[in-house]
Amino acid sequence: MSTTSRPRRRGAPGRLVSAGVIHAALLVAAVVTLFPLIWMFTTAFTPNELTFRRNLGLLPSQPTFANFVAAFQIQPVAHWLMNSLIVSVAIAAGKMLVAIPAAFAFAHFRFRFRDWLFAVIVGTMTIPYVVTLIPTYIAVVKLDLYNTLAGVIVPSIAFCGFAIFFLRQSFKIVPTELLEAAVIDGAGPLRALVSIVIPNSLPAIASLTVLSFLSAWNLYLWPHLILNDSEMKTLSIGLKLFATNQEQLQQWGPLMATAVLGLLPALTIFAFAQRYIMDAFVHSGIK
């Protein structure tokens, strides 16, 4: 950008031009990023008949909720939303239950094989999940968990390597003196975890819970394999079913309305937790 040989202070007049260029570039990138989602909202609120008039207007001329009503009639969208909610909450909670104690042990205890076992856990982050697909699928079928939410939830909890890696990093920041003081006061390890470590790491735990929830909300291939009946599907895979069925029906309005319903929970949670999530990334020390 600047070809000057002498360093300039940020904000000095010589920077004004390039500052404008930078903003323009970032703005274009932001518009391109957001546009498809804005278009989704536009279509969702446009009467379905009008979606076939080739239109470039961003605001629907006759805004309507009819597509949302229609979506619930065409497909079991209410079931999908409920199933998604159950699956996501259960996976996020399960991951936290498994990851928090493990991260605590790896952060603040000394025991045999500790580093080796930690490597075993973190190593799962480098394994493509497709290699577990077939045996796990067979096991789920044999255990009669096919077409059940439990069949989706239980195996997914095991993908907690990132959570443990990430939480260990933030648990380490909790001062050892605090823990030692608690132990001297007679606290056992569990008390130390619950009353010292967790309260001192709430932002990290919150952001990780949110990330786990979002990744579960967005799960695709695994629920696609396990959930068969259309009423058992999660929203994520229900949308695929909807998209396949609608090609003859041409229901773009209701389809986009369903996509909006799927996006809104994720977007809302992200809006509230954005600060924590971004801070968590800044402090995660991913190296």
Binding site: L235, F242, A243
Partner: peptide
């Protein structure tokens, strides 16, 4: 810039 990351594959797909 982060928003598409939290959009699911199927929503991204149908959009």
């Amino acid at each position: 810039y982060f928003i598409p990351t939290i959009v699911s594959f199927s929503i991204a797909g149908v959009v």
